[in-house]
């Protein structure tokens, strides 16, 4: 008997799962709106994916195949830790292949392989409120969302352009959902933003510490905020992957020596590996 045998399927008790499930249905029905939920203390720290873990726990069935990535990689320590948590508490199958997964929990990336209709993406979100750094008060930002009053965000983006000649946001780049709610896509690089738009997969976002759940149903219109004369550009390092040669994937920069040497490699390890295998 392991320590986890004492816990319920997928760790959470049924009351908690029901509460999260009700919040998830509201989130799906109101795309981009942050539904408050009574986030629980999890056996991992706030800020380390407790929101994503609770959403995944509420969605998992015994038939699922789970993939967990952090920074695009399956083998980063926190991804390993979360994957093992669900292996132990839910006994579900796990995979590193994007195509084989039915639920993908992620921190900071969307996989390169196109998502499919039968898949659910679960994003770990640190600060779900896209207006938080412009207005720290929840009472104020809630009012702004209620009125769809996003002038403050427009002003911020415009000031960026005035100062830097471009919008100086590289990740967690705000989006507008179906022309209504402005939403934080979680700290994915803006390179990944276009993957949110019209995706065949359901996308769920969980912020544990901040007690919010939100969602993008499949085939939802998701636009990155921009201006006509400064259109959004999904940028990445202007290199090919030094391992697999991919030119269309998001790259990590790796320092290789103390002489300024560096290489660029795919941040999506499963994508990079499958390309290497194809080449052999």
């Amino acid at each position: 008997m392991t320590a986890m045998d004492a816990y319920n399927f997928a760790y959470l008790d049924e009351d908690t799962k029901r509460m999260i499930r009700r919040a998830l249905l509201k989130a799906v029905a109101i795309p981009g709106y942050q539904v408050p939920f009574a986030s629980r203390e999890m056996p991992m720290p706030y800020g380390w994916g407790t929101g994503g873990v609770q959403v995944t726990a509420a969605c998992l069935t015994p038939d699922d195949r789970l993939k967990v990535i952090d920074q695009g990689a399956d083998d980063t320590t926190n991804a390993v830790s979360i994957r093992r948590f669900f292996q132990r508490t839910a006994g579900v199958e796990v995979t590193e292949e994007t195509e084989d997964a039915t639920i993908i929990q992620t921190r900071h990336r969307i996989p390169e392989a196109p998502l499919q209709e039968r898949q659910i993406m679960v994003f770990q979100v640190p600060i779900p409120e896209p207006l938080r750094f412009l207005e720290p008060r929840e009472t104020e930002t809630r009012r702004m969302h209620a009125l769809a009053d996003y002038g403050l965000m427009q002003v911020k983006l415009y000031e960026d352009i005035a100062r830097h000649g471009r919008i100086a946001t590289a990740y967690a780049y705000p989006v507008r959902v179906e022309g209504r709610y402005v939403m934080d896509p979680s700290p994915i690089p803006k390179f990944d933003n276009p993957k949110l738009d019209d995706s065949p997969a359901l996308m769920l976002f969980g912020a544990g510490r901040e007690q919010r759940i939100y969602a993008l149903p499949p085939y939802t219109r998701v636009e990155s905020l921009d201006f006509d004369d400064h259109p959004f550009v999904a940028s990445k390092a202007d290199h090919a992957c030094d391992i697999c040669g991919a030119t269309e994937s998001y790259l990590d920069e790796v320092i290789t020596d103390d002489q300024g040497g560096r290489i660029f490699v795919c941040s999506d390890t499963a994508f990079c590996r499958s390309r290497q295998e194809d080449r052999q």
């Binding site: 380390w48 952090d70 900071h108 690089p189 990590d252």
Partner: peptide, 13 residues
């Protein structure tokens, strides 16, 4: 925790 991806995006920017 690793923030390579976001840091990379900032580097590019």
């Amino acid at each position: 925790l690793p923030h390579y991806v976001d840091f990379q995006a900032e580097l590019e920017l």
